[in-house]
Simulated scan of single mutants.
Amino acid sequence: MSTLSPQTATLHGHSLSYLDSGDGSAVLFVHGLLGSHRNWAHLIDRLDDTHRVVVPDLFGHGASAKPMGDYSLGAHAATLRDLLDRLGIDRVTLVGHSLGGGISLEFCYLFPERVRRLILVGSGGLGREVSPLLRSATLPGAELVLSVVASNWVRGRAESVGRVLSKAGWRPGSDLTALWQGYASLGDADSRRAFLATTRAVVDPGGQSVSARALLPEIAKIPLLVVWGTRDRMIPPWHATAAQAAVPGCRVELFEGSGHFPHLDEPDRFAEVVRDFITETEVSPG
């Protein structure tokens, strides 16, 4: 796990937290809903020997600001573009997980000249289906329910139960651990407001409300790798076939037995897949 300290950039009057390590061609990691740079930090040491690795906390997440305003895919994509400008980075390999995949797809559509290649991990934006857990956040009254279930009292009781189960030999998987960390970040009103605004920008009671399928042929010139866990219960793995069908030459890697966070389940394999994809899609000068 990387021990880097986050840096801060002020964009449009708000602070954006990020990690930046290594030299070489840049790789920009974009986390999902309720995530942060912590979802990717364990990969930095596996890649920054040959690449410059940039890992931000999106606005509304992690240590970044949680302002009132626009939490749409386009707004997040524009923020990432502004961060790259601030860091003097012209083009990147984009790696987007879940919501971050949807943001990455939007980035490719808006700023294709800034993208060398695209890696989608359990990505949003490729189909209507999504977990009922996320759909419930779009229902009336979700604000009140979330303020109760994310309260210190409820979280404290859940942690106590977890400690008892751990003593009995239970070990939570990567999905549950990552989701719990995200859930635990909703203890304050600003974080809950940003979470609900972000969720409602891409999900409605029927499922995902934003689709990138129509955009895929338009970004087909960008090399595309899709990674999915075969036991993903947040977004079904067959969504990977949508990208494969729409983009000739799209590479798909299925992580057998992994859930929504294959990069946490098998970090060494994931880093190797990323390295291999970057190498095989490198264009020689001239």
Rank of each mutant, 00 (worst) to 15 (best):
M1D: 13
P6T: 04
Q7T: 08
L19V: 03
G24I: 03
V30C: 10
H31W: 07
H31F: 09
S36W: 06
R38Y: 05
W40N: 08
L43W: 04
L43N: 02
I44Y: 05
D45K: 09
D45V: 01
L47N: 06
H51Q: 04
L58F: 05
L58N: 05
F59I: 01
H61K: 00
A63F: 08
A65K: 06
A65W: 02
G69Y: 04
Y71W: 01
L73T: 04
A75E: 05
H76Y: 14
A77G: 09
A78R: 15
T79V: 14
L80V: 06
L87S: 03
R91H: 11
V92Q: 01
V92A: 13
V92K: 05
G102S: 08
F111P: 02
R116S: 12
L120D: 05
G122F: 06
S123D: 03
S123K: 08
G124A: 15
G124D: 10
G124Y: 07
L126Y: 07
R128D: 12
V130D: 13
S131F: 05
S131E: 11
P132G: 07
L133E: 15
S136C: 11
A137E: 12
T138M: 10
A142D: 08
A142F: 01
L144C: 00
V145A: 11
V145Y: 06
S151H: 02
S151Q: 04
V154W: 11
R155A: 13
A158M: 15
E159A: 14
R163S: 13
R163M: 12
S166P: 10
K167W: 14
K167I: 04
G169H: 11
P172H: 07
G173N: 13
S174P: 14
L176K: 13
T177F: 11
Y183T: 07
S185K: 03
G187W: 03
G187A: 03
D190F: 00
S191N: 07
S191F: 04
A194F: 01
L196C: 00
T198L: 05
A201E: 01
V202Y: 06
D204F: 03
G207W: 05
Q208F: 06
S209W: 07
V210D: 10
A212R: 12
A212L: 10
R213C: 13
A214D: 15
A214F: 04
P217F: 04
K221T: 12
K221L: 10
L224G: 03
V226D: 07
W228G: 08
T230Q: 06
R233H: 14
P236T: 03
H239S: 10
H239W: 10
A242V: 15
P248T: 00
G249E: 02
R251D: 14
F255I: 00
S258W: 03
S258I: 06
G259T: 09
H260W: 01
H260D: 07
F261V: 02
P267A: 08
D268T: 12
R269N: 00
R269A: 03
A271G: 09
E272A: 15
E280N: 01
E282A: 15
P285F: 00
G286L: 15
